[in-house]
Simulated scan of single mutants.
Amino acid sequence: MKKVAIIICVLFSLNGFSQNANKLTSEFNLEKKVAIQGYDPVTYFKQSKAVKGNKELSAVFEGVNYYFSSSENKEAFLKKPSAYEPQYGGWCAFAMGDSGEKVTVNPYTFKIIDGKLYLFYNAYFTNTLKSWNKDQDNLKTKADVNWRKIIN
């Protein structure tokens, strides 16, 4: 009887993980289930720049696929994935704070704040990182609230 109870608990846990992964993949900014348009999330922290990842060096975290530019970066990510994930599912941090909208990003326009990666829209003469920098604390607080509403 004890074994049956353990098996049931494991099955429910896996089902919860699957639902969580599906929720993330449906809300994250992904192209063919790949985060950050295939850019290596670790290079933002280690090299302070966007570097395209390699499909052969990929890892999946909570249903989201990430590409890496080196096996060292992949290993670093696998040790602590949450440390490298982009905030707000990889959507524009400014738009998330300003209006709660999911707006695509330019992977080259980013900022590291308190050890977290924030990405921004930058096209057609509009760089939202500049607007974010003018009111970062307020926008970050609003973006955190808006993102929680989306993923819950």
Rank of each mutant, 00 (worst) to 15 (best):
L57S: 02
L57T: 05
N54H: 10
F61M: 02
V60A: 02
L57V: 10
S48Q: 14
I36Y: 02
G53P: 03
A50H: 04
V60S: 12
F45L: 12
K46M: 12
S48V: 04
G38D: 07
S48C: 03
K49D: 07
A50Q: 05
E62R: 13
Q47P: 01
S58T: 04
V64Q: 03
V34C: 03
Q37T: 04
G63C: 08
F61N: 14
E56N: 15
A50D: 08
G63P: 03
A50Y: 10
S58L: 03
L57D: 01
S58D: 13
A59G: 02
A35Y: 05
S58I: 01
V34I: 15
V51A: 05
G53H: 07
E62G: 00
V60Q: 08
E56H: 11
K55M: 08
V34P: 07
F45N: 11
P41T: 09
Q47D: 14
P41E: 08
G38F: 09
N54Y: 05
K52W: 00
K52N: 06
Y39F: 15
Y44D: 10
K49V: 04
K49N: 10
Q37I: 04
F45S: 11
S58R: 08
K49C: 04
G38C: 06
Y39P: 04
V64H: 04
Y44K: 12
V64W: 00
G53Q: 06
K55L: 08
D40E: 06
E56Q: 14
L57W: 04
D40M: 08
K52G: 00
A35L: 03
V64D: 01
E62N: 15
G63H: 07
Q37S: 12
K49G: 03
K55Q: 13
S58E: 14
G63Y: 07
A59I: 00
G63K: 07
Y44C: 11
L57K: 11
A35E: 06
G63V: 06
A35S: 15
P41M: 10
N54F: 06
G53M: 09
P41W: 11
F45I: 12
V51C: 01
P41I: 01
V51R: 06
N54M: 09
K46R: 13
